[in-house]
């Protein structure tokens, strides 16, 4: 039986959601999985709401449309809750991970998440400000994803980051990103 995991990302343009969707895919690829990652392109304006998708499967992936019934939803900006139903189409036993300073209970209420679904929160923006010195919650949130879902170990995320960032960033920047993954892995609350 093939194991398919479908992830939907909710973010605002400029938060690096597409990069994160690809980072998750590329990390899963290191484990020998088949992957897909795609953005849902709308108007390219910083701050505009956007969705992105990641598929991970032990078998080749035939479908190529948007993900309608995600197993995991990741929300990079909790102000999106005012305009977006982040639970739309989710499986009853799905998992939601929020970048927020709110508590699990607060966000569950705000996003109207049914009790059957798992909710996790992490201040990915705060961690990014501490480590990367920029509000880029996309890298740390992947550390939280690793912890909450066990999709892959955090070490593998860091290995993949070194491959991706090794070509274009300074060692200082790479180390900051790696540290952000570790902190989110440790600090995420369920």
């Amino acid at each position: 039986m093939s194991q398919l995991t479908e992830i939907r990302w909710h973010a605002r343009a400029g938060q690096g959601a597409v990069t994160a969707a690809k980072l998750v895919a590329d990390t899963a690829l290191l484990q020998g999985n088949y992957i897909q990652a795609m953005p849902e392109y709308g108007p390219e304006r910083t701050g505009a709401p956007l969705k992105a998708y990641t598929r991970v499967c032990s078998e080749p992936i035939e479908v190529h449309n948007n993900i309608q019934n995600p197993d995991i939803v990741i929300v990079l900006d909790d102000t999106l809750l005012e305009s977006t139903d982040v639970c739309e189409g989710m499986h009853d036993d799905g998992t939601l991970i929020f970048n927020t300073t709110k508590t699990v209970e607060e966000i569950r209420k705000a996003a109207q998440v049914p009790d059957s679904m798992k909710v996790a929160v992490v201040d990915a923006s705060g961690i990014a400000m501490d480590t990367i010195k920029k509000d880029m919650p996309n890298t740390p949130i992947v550390g939280a994803l690793a912890k909450v879902t066990g999709l892959f170990p955090p070490e593998l995320v860091k290995e993949r980051l070194k491959i991706t960032f090794g070509k274009k960033f300074s060692q200082e920047m790479i180390d900051a990103n790696l540290a952000s993954v570790d902190r989110a892995y440790q600090e995420v609350q369920e």
Binding site: K22, A25, Y34, I35, M38, Y41, I61, H64
Partner: peptide, 10 residues
């Protein structure tokens, strides 16, 4: 367009 041009695939 996009589904094949821009989606990351194996």
């Amino acid at each position: 367009g996009f589904v094949t041009t821009h989606a990351m695939d194996c």
